Each structure stands twice: as structure tokens, then as C-alpha cells.
Simulated assay, not measured.
Amino acid sequence: MTQLQTGTPLLTASDYRRSAQRLVGSDVWDFIEGGAEDERTLAANLRAFDRVRLRPRVLAGVPDADTTVSLFGTAYATPIGIAPTAYHRLVDAEGEVATARGAGRAGALFVVGMFASRTIEDIAAAASSGLWLQLYWLRRRDVMRDLAERAERSGYGAIMLTVDVPRMGRRWRDMRNGFAIGGDVAAVNIEPAVMAEAHRRDEGGSALARHTAGSFDPSLSWADLAWLRDCTRLPLVLKGILTAEDAALAVAHGADAIVVSNHGGRQLDGAVASLDALAEVADAVGGACPVLFDGGVRRGADALAALALGARMVLLGRPPLWGLAAGGADGVAGVLRTATEELAHAMVLAGRAALPDLDRTALRPTSLAGGDA
């Protein structure tokens, strides 16, 4: 349990959210919290978990739950990790360095965003648990290669390629705010010329959308993955898979893992909720590679549902930023520990002693039907 300086206990992710909102500027808050267009998919991610009903088991002889998991040869104390998000210095002066420290205290995976506001090397120096690096596919492939090589030299464990952004979703909150990255915050791992548009404010428009349109390569196809494979010896994880068809193609093209994700509801508004796509994708993969998950997880019972449907790991996007804003590294660790404690509690009451014991029998099947995204 974490406490504010006032002594108010932070017991849930919602507590961290309320604390963070008081401390973060309104335009930055909208950047973090917002989704695409009418935010239907953003809301659907949360509603999908509201439909889930767990099946408790009694007299199971399970006094405690083991939440440890291993992936790509690295052991973690929890299957709940941190999804890639950009510009952590928007909410904390230490940025991703503090996030890395917090993840380490919780024994959790931290996927560092391509647009991190601290260097790959500084983040690695602060980490004590596994790090991966996330990339978008840029027109400037030399920039991608450089980042992958730096990550490998710095001890990162995998490259996560986000594949659902041939163009950025229409994020109306950012457009109404004329949002741009300001002050001394920048994507410091990329040369300034590549990032210039992200800092140019335009009333009624999003600087990040303008930057994406100019810098991302929308012609990316499955055949291009071979080039990235040649850039690094690290495992390649594809993030943004929502259909059986794309899951099968990912396996066929040698993905070492995939992430079921709709980008936190920030891309195609009206897309299926991540949880509603998870079983379809896991079935299509058929154990050929690990399946990870993000989208709407706010409590340990949510993580249990995703793990029971076939995820090996569950990644949190917004909640670690809430923790970072509310309390720096301690806040990040608090969010992760709280979710892990909730998961262990739910596992005991469901009669599941370890993560491999979680399967679809932990959930009431009818509660997962009828996605509404």
C-alpha cells in the first residue's frame, strides 16, 4: 500500500488515477486518457471486463498463489508488466528512469517506448528487471536500426514492433487542445530533425498526428519484417493483433510473441475490445508463440481473466503513468504491486495455485459472449 504525503492510502488503480489527475495539466491528461474519435473502443475495453464472471472453487487447498512467470529466459515476479507509452517526463521529472526503478521494485517487465524521454542507456542503468524496446516503423530505417542495436547493446530482452499505426487514430481531445510536446520534454533517443513536427503547436490539430503522418511508413507489410529480423538478434514481438487471420500470419512470419491490443482504444474507433479478441487470437496461435495482452486492465481480477483466456503476460498502459504522476518510482511500484496482490488474491479464491493452472474453466463462458465494441 502506498500513501500520499497527506497520509491518504492508495489502495486501487482508481486511487492512483484520482491522485494523478490533480497533479497533471489538463492537456497532458487528455493525451494520456484519451482515445480515438468518440472513444467507443476505449469504453468497450473497460466494459468487456465488467461482463466477466469468475468461477470460485472451494476446499481447493490453495493457501497462496505463485505469480511468477518466465519469458525469453527472464523470470518475473508478476505477469503484470508495463506497456509502452511515450514521454514519461510529461508527468515526472525523472521520466522513464523512475518507471524503470518502479518496475524493478515490483519484479515486472517494462516495455520502453520508442518515444521515451530518457535515453535507452539511462533507463537500462536504472532497471533491475527485464526491459524490452518498442518501435514504430519509420520511413527512416536507419533510425530504427540504430535503436535496435542500442537496445541490444544495453541489455534489452526483446524488440516490440507496434503494427497497428499505418496512420495515427483521430484523437479529438488532442486536436481540440492543439496538443504538442512542449518544454524540455523530447524523444531523446531520436535525432531532433525526425521529431520536429511533434513540437510544433497548431490550433485545432495534433502535432503528434502530423509527426506520425510525416515519419511513419504506412506501406509496411508482412514481407518487411525480415529486414528488422536482420537488424537484431533479439526476439521480435508484434503488438496490435486482434484477429485470427493476423495471428496466423504473425506465426507464419516468425513472430516470437504477439500482443493482443487495440492500442488502448486510440486507433480505430469501433474496433473490437481487446478482451473480446483474445480467445480468438490465442486459439489461432495454438501455442506456437506466447500471447501477451493489453487493453483495459484495471485490477488483478481483470488480469486473471486475460491470463485464463490464453495470455502469458498482461501489460498496463495508463495505470503506471498514474502511479508515476502520483508518486514517481514508488507510485509505479505501488500500481504494479497492488495489481499483483489483487491477482494473487483472486487466484486463491478461484482455487488456482499458479499461473499455469489458469484456463477458461476459471471463467463463466456466458459472461464472455456478446462483445459490444
Rank of each mutant, 00 (worst) to 15 (best):
T2C: 06
L4F: 03
T12Q: 04
A13C: 13
D15Y: 03
R17Y: 08
A20E: 04
Q21T: 00
R22P: 00
R22Y: 00
R22T: 02
S26P: 08
V28P: 06
V28S: 01
W29V: 01
D30W: 00
I32F: 12
G35A: 01
G35P: 03
D38T: 04
E39S: 00
E39W: 01
L42A: 09
A43E: 15
R47A: 12
R47T: 11
A48C: 05
A48V: 02
R51G: 03
L54M: 09
L54K: 06
P56R: 09
R57V: 06
R57L: 13
V58L: 14
V62Y: 06
D66T: 08
T67D: 08
V69P: 05
G73H: 13
A86C: 12
Y87H: 14
H88Y: 03
D92Y: 08
D92P: 07
A93C: 01
G95C: 10
G95D: 08
G95A: 10
V97G: 09
T99N: 07
A100K: 14
A103L: 08
R105V: 07
F110H: 15
F110G: 10
V111N: 08
S117A: 09
T119I: 02
T119A: 01
E121D: 15
D122R: 07
A124F: 08
A124N: 12
A125D: 15
A125K: 14
A126L: 14
A127Y: 12
S128E: 07
S129G: 13
L131N: 04
R139N: 12
R140S: 14
V143N: 03
A151C: 13
E152Q: 15
S154Y: 06
G155N: 03
L161Q: 11
L161Y: 10
T162R: 06
V163H: 05
P166A: 06
P166I: 05
R167M: 10
R171Y: 11
R171F: 13
R173E: 05
D174P: 01
R176I: 04
G178D: 01
F179K: 00
A180T: 02
I181M: 02
D184N: 13
A186P: 09
N189L: 10
N189F: 12
V194L: 13
M195G: 02
A196W: 00
H199L: 01
H211I: 00
T212M: 13
A213R: 15
S219D: 15
S221Q: 12
D230I: 00
C231A: 15
T232D: 10
R233D: 14
L234T: 13
L234I: 12
P235T: 06
P235G: 07
P235D: 05
L236A: 05
D246N: 11
L249H: 07
V251F: 10
D256C: 08
D256Q: 14
H263F: 13
Q267K: 03
D269I: 07
L275A: 07
E280P: 12
V281M: 11
V281F: 12
D283V: 12
G286W: 01
G287C: 04
V291F: 04
L292S: 01
F293T: 05
F293Q: 03
F293A: 05
V297K: 09
G300W: 10
A301V: 15
A308Y: 11
G310Q: 10
M313K: 08
P319Y: 12
P320A: 08
D330V: 13
V332D: 05
G334E: 10
V335N: 11
R337M: 13
A339K: 00
R352I: 06
L363P: 10
L363A: 14
R364T: 12
P365G: 09
S367W: 02
S367H: 03
L368T: 07
A369I: 01
